[in-house]
Each structure stands twice: as C-alpha cells, then as structure tokens.
Amino acid sequence: MSAILESSAIIESFKSHAEAVSAQVQRVATKQMALELIARLLHEEGVDDKPKCHAVWAACPLVGPAERQALERAVPGLTFDVTRELAAEAKAGISQMDWALADTGTLVQDATEVAKRLVSTLPPLHIAILSTAAVLPDLAAVVQRIDPLKSPYLSFITGPSRTADIERVLTIGVHGPERLIIILVDDLEVAA
C-alpha cells in the first residue's frame, strides 16, 4: 500500500512540475486508450495527407506492426517513416520516452536513433509517450540507470522550447516544439 501511495505521490509531483513548465500531462490506463487519444489529438491538430500537414512518429515499443497499420489507416498523413524533410514540415511529432524525473518534470530518452531526435526537435508539437512506471524521483535516480556508453545521445526534455533572451520575457517555442503533450500510460512496460 505504501509503495502505491509513494508512487502516486511521485506521479503527482511529476505532473505538477511538468505543468509548471507549460507541458500538458494526460494519463490513461491502457495502451489502447493511449493510441486512441493520440489519434484524436492528431485529428484535432488537423493532421492530414496534405503537404505540411503530416505527423511523424518515431518507432517505439507501444506501436507494433498491427497498431501501426491501424493508426496509419485511422490518421491519414501520419507516417512512421521519418525523414528530415517530413519532420521539418510536420505539424506534430510523436515518440516514446524511457524515463521521467518527478522533481523537475523532465522526460529522458535514449535518442541515438535519428528519428527520435527529428520528431521531437522540428515539429511545433511534440507528443511524448511514457510508461507511468518509468517516473523516477530525481536526476540522481536516472543517472544511475542510464549508460552513456550504450546510449551515445541522451535527451533530457523539460517542457517545450523557451527563451527569455529579449527583455527577459519568457516566450515559449523558439527553435524546438512550442507545445509538449505528455501521455502517461499505466499498462505500458518500462522501455529501457
């Protein structure tokens, strides 16, 4: 019981810290619900099979071959074949994260595969999928779990891209995504 309470406090802490830096956080019980939610979000964003209306999704454990087919059918304009050209013009990028840090609201990912980097850097919206069980308390906890020798490109993402370089006024969305939606999935296995 206490472990459950503790983990729910960690999730709450993660959510509030992520929201404090302008990320949106949603939590779903099942993988299926996560896929449906993302499909709905992409529709709402106007993702379509027209130029500059694509969405790019970096291959991830949540999406097997069957899910991939279903999604591609359900959301025209969504592709799992990520190229730099498509990512540069896409409306949204989707990827799965490996860990998260509760005390800062941070997502952590081994982004060695270039597709993972493209979908979370170039489009204006990044949808990040995360196993609820992958939320760790803090930086020290994740530093113990990651191995830079196995993961030559590690990304820590805390909220959307931001700047305060003009008159110290906080402005969201400079070179990276303007919006970050985090989807916590309860029955998703921890990836790493």
Binding site: T112, I157, S161, A164
Partner: peptide
C-alpha cells in the same frame, strides 16, 4: 548530478533547463 542540479537553478532560477543533451560518441546522421 550536482552540477546539473546547481547550474540551472543558479543561472536562470530554473529547476532544469528545457533541454540537456548528453553526447558520448558519433550518432547516425539523418
């Protein structure tokens, strides 16, 4: 860990900056 705990807090009063990137070798190009 201690450096990344102190740097953003002291620099811009952030708990962590939006991005921390750790590169430990050549990775694939696009």
């Amino acid at each position: 860990t201690p450096i990344l705990t102190a740097l953003p807090r002291s620099a811009t009063a952030q708990l962590l900056t939006s991005y921390v990137t750790i590169v430990s070798g050549p990775v694939p190009n696009t």
